[in-house]
């Protein structure tokens, strides 16, 4: 951590503004900027079981390290994937923010996400609880972990050809 940085804990406003930025980048397909929001060891996780915590040893819908996030983004832009050609259009709303913990170097933020997708004449909604582990880097906040718990994760889902 930069020793010149003021020792002020991350507050709700800063964390909210950051994850709204992330949401905006995903809805507008700014994948390069989205990839840059992460710590090198950051994990993007979409679990199946509601109580799952040991994601590494559990089957998930997605358990992405940096390399997998890059591949996921490439898949959306390469034109090779028939389910992502075109990519679904999405609009996501984040609300009901709560800081579960906060310090100078990092925080854990929980919020609700309502996402509507539209593709090939079909509109669908996916509702999820999001939990972010954010850390402060030299040039602002970074995502160290994002866990997307879909409320219907244990049900049979339709193909999700975009990044939740």
């Amino acid at each position: 951590m930069d020793t010149n940085m003021p020792a002020i804990a991350i507050d709700l406003d800063e964390a909210m503004r950051f994850v709204w930025l992330e949401a905006d980048l995903l809805d507008h397909a700014c994948y390069a900027e989205w990839l840059a929001l992460w710590t090198p060891g950051g994990r993007y996780v979409v679990p199946i079981e509601p109580g799952a915590e040991d994601f590494e040893n559990t089957l998930n819908y997605a358990y992405d390290d940096h390399a997998m996030r890059v591949k996921r983004a490439e898949r959306l832009t390469s034109g090779q994937s028939v389910s992502a050609s075109p990519v679904a259009r999405t609009v996501r709303l984040l609300s009901r923010f709560r800081l579960l913990s906060a310090g100078v170097e990092g925080c854990e933020l929980r919020c609700a996400q309502l996402l509507t997708e539209y593709r090939r004449g079909r509109e669908r909604m996916y509702t999820a609880d999001l939990t972010f582990r954010l850390v402060r880097g030299a040039d602002g906040l970074r995502i160290d972990r994002k866990v997307i718990r879909l409320i219907n994760a244990t049900d049979a889902l339709r193909g999700i050809g975009y990044i939740l």
């Binding site: 979409v46 819908y61 997605a62 591949k71 898949r75 994937s81 028939v82 389910s83 992502a84 889902l157 339709r158 193909g159 999700i160 050809g161 939740l164």
Partner: peptide, 11 residues
């Protein structure tokens, strides 16, 4: 549903 294969099959 978020794999790199199944969604293309489903499509």
């Amino acid at each position: 549903p978020m794999g790199f294969g199944s969604p293309d099959d489903a499509e």
